[in-house]
Design a binder for these strands. Structure first.
Ligand SMILES: [Mn+2]
Ligand SMILES: [Mn+2]
Ligand SMILES: [Mn+2]
Ligand SMILES: [Mn+2]
Lengths: 220, 220
DNA sequence: ATTTAAATTTAGACAAATCTAAAATTAAAA
DNA sequence: TTTTAATTTTAGATTTGTCTAAATTTAAAT
């Protein structure tokens, strides 16, 4: 089982998208990979031929078990290398992603397992994401509503449960989107509104109704 | 200047060949890269267009200054990764070449320099070959082939020029590795084979082909 | 100096991965 | 329910790197 770098990138991106959506669309994947929908369709055919995903034209797609296993191995490599770069080579957590995006395609399984041991079998990468073990097992952190998040606990937006245009417009205006890292600075019991801090931005206030529909996961 | 993996492989192989030959031939490069002469010609045109080598058709070729600089950077990466694999990940010196052949194409210059620092700026890789520094300087050590070593002159193995698995396996079986101290006890003109003595071991016989690829330096 | 052989290059093809433009399908709006 | 818009797929082209087979050039042998 050895896949090209491009196939590995596709598998990984599909894996992430289907965690949120269940089913993945051509446009979503093209956006995630910064490529064109037509290119995605081309690749989908190849991945389907290799029996890595379930796909019917015009109907969306998702990884099957084989595809998930392959994707998880790529994610494992990516996160172990990021951990290595930060912990051993003194890189900042914000400058390792691009390099790991290349290193994740080195194929030696033995290398990855030795690296894992060398690093002391870490279970979380520098961004707080879990690192799959050698067998591909990993603890998917459960996501909670922003309204349940404790004060001052760093978290990352992992889903928006109410996806009305109005809601998304409001969040966009407050600079909150999927992946945004934030923490709660203050809670107002009067109306259960929250004051939320995002790095490099002034604090913003969210109503209880909004907070309820923003799902977050631990950000280390 | 960022080059594709294939171009980097070509540059590196040309560099090594021209150390021996001065000028490099199409067939020699094809053999070194396990590819076809026609493919080499194709690549030569591209490298010439990018002004990395001097080339006239049917007349051989060699790297210019730019090409040498690029090749040395690839060699630096290759050898630093090999050192990392052996010293930090506990790989055997005979199993790292293939992996380094992939790792050498990771492009981040910062990564290489950080790795270098992390490893303590080593100047010799696990096969005894010198590691170029950040500016591309490196000490080509004065070493001779074992087949040129005079009788009964103590020497120390400093490099293995043919690093195939088969070669390394053979040497391992005869208890010869980097740093091994030895001397030639007898030379057989019939087939140019050698009888070599290693301290605390019975003498071993080496073929001319093997001896040619074992490089030694004066034993202090 | 011819002839023969070896080395090298060209011509034409192919696979992988990508793209643009146009067609087909599905979803949304009127 | 038409009509319109958005999404997705196809058709055909492009780039990079590789190959085989044939042609060209250089080197070796007679
Ligand atoms: Mn990352
Ligand atoms: Mn990648
Ligand atoms: Mn090597
Ligand atoms: Mn390589």
């Amino acid at each position: 089982m050895k896949f090209s770098a491009s196939k590995e990138n596709h598998l990984k991106a599909i894996f992430h998208l289907q965690l949120e959506q269940g089913i993945v669309t051509t446009n979503a994947l093209a956006a995630a990979l910064q490529t064109r929908p037509a290119s995605v369709t081309d690749m989908l055919k190849k991945l389907k031929d290799q029996k890595l995903l379930l796909y019917e034209r015009y109907k969306g797609f998702r990884l099957n078990n084989e595809g998930k296993k392959a994707a998880i191995q790529v994610i494992r490599k990516h996160r172990l290398w990021e951990y290595f770069l930060v912990k051993k080579l003194q890189f900042g957590w914000d400058e390792v992603h691009e390099i790991a995006e290349e290193l994740e395609h080195i194929s030696s399984k033995k290398l990855v397992d030795r690296l894992d041991a060398f690093l002391g079998f870490p279970d979380t990468d520098p961004h707080g994401d879990p690192i799959p073990d050698s067998q591909g097992r990993f603890l998917q952190r459960r996501q909670i509503s922003l309204s349940e998040l404790p004060l001052n606990k760093p978290a990352q937006v992992s889903a928006i449960s109410s996806q009305t245009t109005e809601m998304l417009e409001l969040l966009q205006h407050k600079h909150i989107q999927l992946g945004t890292r934030l923490e709660i600075r203050k809670k107002f019991p009067f109306d259960n509104s929250l004051e939320v801090k995002i790095r490099n931005r002034p604090p913003v206030t969210l109503s209880a109704q909004v907070a309820k529909n923003v799902l977050v996961k631990d950000d280390e």
